[in-house]
Each structure stands twice: as C-alpha cells, then as structure tokens.
C-alpha cells in the first residue's frame, strides 16, 4: 500500500519542517519542496500507467487522438503550474505564485487556441 508510504513521508516531513521553521525557515522550505517532488515522482509512475491504458483504449475505439493529446498536455501544464505556485506560496511569495498561475493559464490558452479556432471554423462551415 503506497498510500501509507506517502502519508508516512508527508507526516515526517511536516514534523521536521515544523520543528525547523522557527530556527531555520529556509531549511523548512527545502524540506517541503523535496517532499513534494518525491510524492509527485511516486504518483507519476501510476499516472503514466493509467494514461497509457486510456491511450490504448482511445486507439482501439478509433477516436481522434488530437483531442486526447491536447487534453493530456493541458492537464500536465496545469499540474506543473499548480505545483510551482504552491511551492512559491509556501515560501511566502504570493505575488510570484500568482504569476506562475498566470503563466500556466496563458500557456493552456495558447494550446487551446487552435481548438477554439477549429470550433469556429466548424460553425462557419455549418452556416449556409
């Protein structure tokens, strides 16, 4: 049961971070950052397996892979942007965190622009 490992790691890291926060706040930040990365890496393997399975299903039912690929890219960007923003927010840098979120949003929208334009093209082609 990997959830126990993750929870154990998270609890230990939280206690260490709490103890260190009063004396060495910069070390507490580093501990929380490293813990976040470790948890992310543990779940990454599982997510990859699930995504691979879904991809194989999508291929079997002959679905247009453009939708799936774009969706997955968007989810990845959202995850990374949120992770970065949370780390910045933990360090007390709310302004930088909101900029990271903004960058994530902009990149997602840039990726989605071709989808939106193709939808517009679709609507135009429907019109007589």
């Amino acid at each position: 049961m990997e959830i126990f490992q993750i929870i154990g790691l998270a609890l230990v890291a939280t206690i260490i971070a709490l103890l260190l926060k009063s004396h060495r706040p910069e070390m507490a930040l580093q501990i929380s950052l490293v813990t976040g990365i470790i948890i992310f890496l543990v779940i990454l393997g599982k997510i990859t397996a699930v995504v691979d399975l879904l991809n194989s299903y999508a291929e079997r039912v002959n679905i247009d892979m453009v939708y799936i690929n774009t969706l997955l890219k968007i989810v990845g960007i959202a995850y990374i942007a949120e992770f970065g923003a949370e780390v910045c927010r933990d360090a007390g840098e709310g302004a930088i965190a909101s900029k990271v979120e903004l960058a994530g949003k902009v990149i997602i929208v840039v990726m989605a622009v071709p989808i939106i334009t193709s939808l517009l093209d679709l609507i135009i082609s429907v019109m007589p």
């Binding site: 968007i74 959202a78 942007a81 949120e82 979120e101 997602i108 929208v109 989605a112």
Partner: peptide, 11 residues
C-alpha cells in the same frame, strides 16, 4: 485528476 486551483476553470 486536475488540481483544484485557478487553472481548473480554463481546463
């Protein structure tokens, strides 16, 4: 799967 942050609306 997506994180419940500000990017959720755009996704």
């Amino acid at each position: 799967l997506i994180p419940s942050g500000k990017t959720k609306k755009i996704v």
